[in-house]
Design a binder for these strands. Sequence first.
DNA 1: GAGGCGGATGAAATTACTTTTCAGACGTGA
DNA 2: TCACGTCTGAAAAGTAATTTCATCCGCCTC
Lengths: 311, 311
Amino acid sequence: MKETFKDAAVETRPAPAPPAPAALAAKVRTLAPTMTRSMQRVAETVASDPAGCAALTVTGLAERTGTSEATVVRTSRLLGYPGYRDLRLALAALAAQQAAGGAPAVTADIAVDDSLVDVVAKLAQEEQQCLADTAAGLDVTQLEAAVAALSGARRIDVYGIGASNLVAQDLVQKLLRIGLIAHAHADPHLAVTNAVQMRTGDVAIAITHSGRTTDVIEPLRVAFDHGATTIAITGRPDGEIAAYADHILTTSTARESELRPAAMSSRTSQLLVVDCLFIGVAQRTYETAAPALSASYEALAHRHSPRSTQR
Amino acid sequence: MKETFKDAAVETRPAPAPPAPAALAAKVRTLAPTMTRSMQRVAETVASDPAGCAALTVTGLAERTGTSEATVVRTSRLLGYPGYRDLRLALAALAAQQAAGGAPAVTADIAVDDSLVDVVAKLAQEEQQCLADTAAGLDVTQLEAAVAALSGARRIDVYGIGASNLVAQDLVQKLLRIGLIAHAHADPHLAVTNAVQMRTGDVAIAITHSGRTTDVIEPLRVAFDHGATTIAITGRPDGEIAAYADHILTTSTARESELRPAAMSSRTSQLLVVDCLFIGVAQRTYETAAPALSASYEALAHRHSPRSTQR
DNA sequence: GAGGCGGATGAAATTACTTTTCAGACGTGA
DNA sequence: TCACGTCTGAAAAGTAATTTCATCCGCCTC
């Protein structure tokens, strides 16, 4: 066996997951920031015209993207395939799927002069796409592990700042409803202070789209150092935060436009992940979760005006 | 460019027809009588397990069918492809098509014993459906009016409790980013206290799925009575809250299941409406919104660790 | 029934394509 | 400006696909 140093490292580190089937566009977007310029060109070309690229050989694709064969192969690897041959197969599969789905899916950017009707349609379309991408790109093994950790947790802390904090709160609200002990932290200082208390059997979750939000990484690191099980929900699984996360749940990254900040789609994606976590945990702890859920319903009943027959 | 000698001949002579897309099984049957024994074996194998064969090299398939590489290539040609390479691509495409068509996204309820893979798929599917429903059911006239009111608002108050409060916060975060003055209220008492200050030119927004959450209706009523423009985001446009709302934005109501409380889909729906409001307002106030947006980006830049070189 | 003929078949040679290697180019930070 | 690390593509090395060709088999003829 030869020492391919970095190549070997690249291959063994982020790709225990099987090659993606149809979540290719999503994967391209998630990984794009990791890539070098020429690799980005290749990835982009491939994502935008799977059918066309499937017809090309390495050399052809290299020419078309103005790069070299080596770069094409490198890109294929980064996307999770053993080599170009397999990427090409996946491309053909993807093209067929698209054609079959009959998805015209013209996802034009939202423009300043779009009518509100268009805005509604485009937004809905984009968020749907985002959900599909997230679902396709989610590593179920990691999810499984995260669910297991949460189900037996003594206590759960969730860190999130800004828009991600809302997601953190959402998760906490849900977990509380099924009888788990969970807290959401927005204040970085308090978060760290609390993280110090964490130990084995506790679970810490950090939510950050960029994977580089120090205010969120810090408490996760502390919890990690104290022996807690740590989970990261991020759009950049290769980001700095990965170093302190036992389990990483990847959210999809949509291209952002001027009017539509990234926060918007990352939120949709994060919420789906959070929902999956919740349902997973609820399933696992069904005996206790189900009664807790109905109890919380009943407790809220009197906060609604009694008028209007319901259901 | 080199002489492609016989390839050119082969291609132009017997194959004016383009390679078959997905009607492969049919082609196999039609052509079977023409074929020799070993070719039939290959064709049959290929037709019965496209996915499996797509993973094999010529040598692999030759072995599996107990024939030679040459036979495999010959069979490929007979089926209308330039060579095995292309048959393989078609096979991958076919497999993908079958897989896509075979799984028509069963929207069954999420059950306690569903695997996590199913949970992810079903959740994503449901939320996508929810988005589509919301978009379809949204009254653009009302949205238009709401956007107009918000764009010129002196001050904006948003009321929401529980899960809806997160939506309220989301909206407020966004509005603040484009330079509007907005507040989210969770505490019903404080909300009412603040609502008293509202007057013409101010906008109050209440978010409640049921349309019967008194803690949210109350402040909206007060704001309404004081002359503010009021907007309700609710799943029950006929609910009690309608009486105090100038504009009503209807969110979709998904059936809820035991494991999946209504809060989950209502949140998705509410967020879409909120996003539409935001984009609408951002469009209307583009001159001030755009610089404000980029300013808030820059302000956040230093909260991210500078690591990871990227382009 | 022997000989011969035409097509079918696979082993091996050839060619096309893919992957790896490596040295130079490029950008970056000191 | 220099040194260093990274990116990049040309070309070597390796692998898979295609072609060639000798053999073999079955069938027909005499």
